[in-house]
Amino acid sequence: MRRFSADYLTDTRRGMWADRSALAPLALDSRTRVLDVGCGTGELTRVLREESDAEVVALDADPDLLRAADADARALGDATRLPFRDDAFDLVVCQALLINLPEPRAALAEFARVSADLVACVEPDNAEVVVESSVAAEAPLAKRARDTYIAGVETDVTLGSSAAALLREVGLSDVESRRYEHERTVRPPYDAPALDAAKAKAAGTRIEEQAPTLRRGGLSRTGVDELKSEWKAMGRAVVDAMAAGEYERRAVVPFYVVAGRVASADESGGESADEADGDDPRESGGDADAGETDTERDAVDVPES
């Protein structure tokens, strides 16, 4: 599983759910117990708590990230081996998690096991990202770097648009998918994250960090060096434009909110966990104040995770 820093997750999720209409399929106002898998620093967890009276449990594999999540309870755990009994929740959901897992179906099967009703995911398709910039070199350079990154990354960072098929493959029914566009803009006056991002471009930081993936995507070592040189030149142009108060950038990352229903006990011929025992849904496998992973990353201004 790919992992990311708290600062990175907070920055890339800023303003993500200003419009929450795409979350309608989750029927949050009717939920009683919700699990946010791979919660990271808890950006989606916060939305779930604001939109529902349900008990919201946050789970992540990274204890440092998990501590930042504001939830009714927190648990340290693996998305493919959830530390909960069957049917413990009526909604299990993740955001930008599946694109960072080598076996997303295994995670979805676990979601279905611990959910008595609905399974949902919010996943981007990084192949559909659009970048517009007042610096002419930025958009084509970002697309070139992003396409190379997607070709080299070891998980499917484009699966958002095909997530509905994955939910059906693990046996979920009544699958519904909605596209939600997360728009991130930079314009004057510039805040600290925007200024830091410009400095990182001028230093070629992201290209250097993602060099192994870019090489797997088809670039030679020389090719990576050349891309980094172009990236740094573009970054210096961005810094200069910001100094003049003339830089503007718009990036649109398409996310797909996909939800499917778990077969009921009558439909599956089985007995629910609530009928089988009266245990608390949170087993001792997770610490009520520990954590797991959210996931998202820009290759060089994109892949979201």
Rank of each mutant, 00 (worst) to 15 (best):
R3K: 15
R3N: 11
S5W: 12
S5P: 14
T10H: 07
T10L: 06
R14I: 10
R14A: 14
G15Q: 10
M16K: 03
S21D: 06
A22W: 12
A24E: 15
P25V: 15
P25E: 00
A27C: 10
S30Y: 00
V34M: 02
L35Y: 01
L35A: 05
D36Y: 06
V37G: 04
V37H: 04
G38M: 05
G38I: 09
G40M: 04
G42P: 04
T45S: 02
R46H: 04
R49I: 01
R49D: 00
S52G: 02
S52K: 02
E55P: 05
A58N: 05
D64Y: 09
L65N: 05
L65E: 03
L66Q: 04
L66S: 14
A68K: 13
A71C: 07
A73C: 10
R74D: 04
G77S: 08
D78N: 07
D78V: 13
A79G: 15
F84R: 00
D87P: 10
D87M: 04
A88W: 11
F89D: 03
D90H: 10
V92N: 01
V92M: 02
C94Q: 03
A96G: 13
I99G: 14
N100C: 15
L101Y: 10
P102Q: 12
P104Q: 09
P104W: 02
A106E: 05
L108I: 11
A109M: 03
A109N: 03
R113T: 07
V119E: 01
V119I: 14
A120Y: 03
V122T: 07
E123P: 12
P124T: 03
A127P: 06
A127M: 10
V131N: 05
E132Q: 12
S133V: 05
A137W: 11
A142W: 06
R144F: 10
D147L: 08
G152S: 15
V153S: 02
D156Y: 03
T158L: 03
S162P: 11
A163P: 09
A165F: 03
A165V: 15
V170C: 00
G171T: 09
L172F: 05
V175Q: 01
R178E: 01
R179P: 13
E181P: 04
E183D: 05
P189G: 06
P189S: 08
A194S: 11
A202S: 08
A203Q: 00
T205N: 05
T205C: 02
R206Q: 12
A211D: 04
P212D: 13
L219D: 00
R221P: 10
G223P: 14
L227Y: 06
S229N: 12
A233C: 11
A237K: 12
V239W: 00
M242I: 05
Y247A: 15
V253L: 04
V257S: 00
V258C: 13
V258L: 03
G260H: 00
V262N: 00
A263Q: 12
A263H: 07
D266M: 02
E267Q: 12
E267W: 09
S268R: 12
G269M: 13
G270K: 10
P281F: 04
S284T: 11
S284I: 10
D289A: 13
E292K: 07
T293P: 13
D298R: 13
V302S: 08
P303G: 02
E304C: 06
E304L: 15
S305E: 10
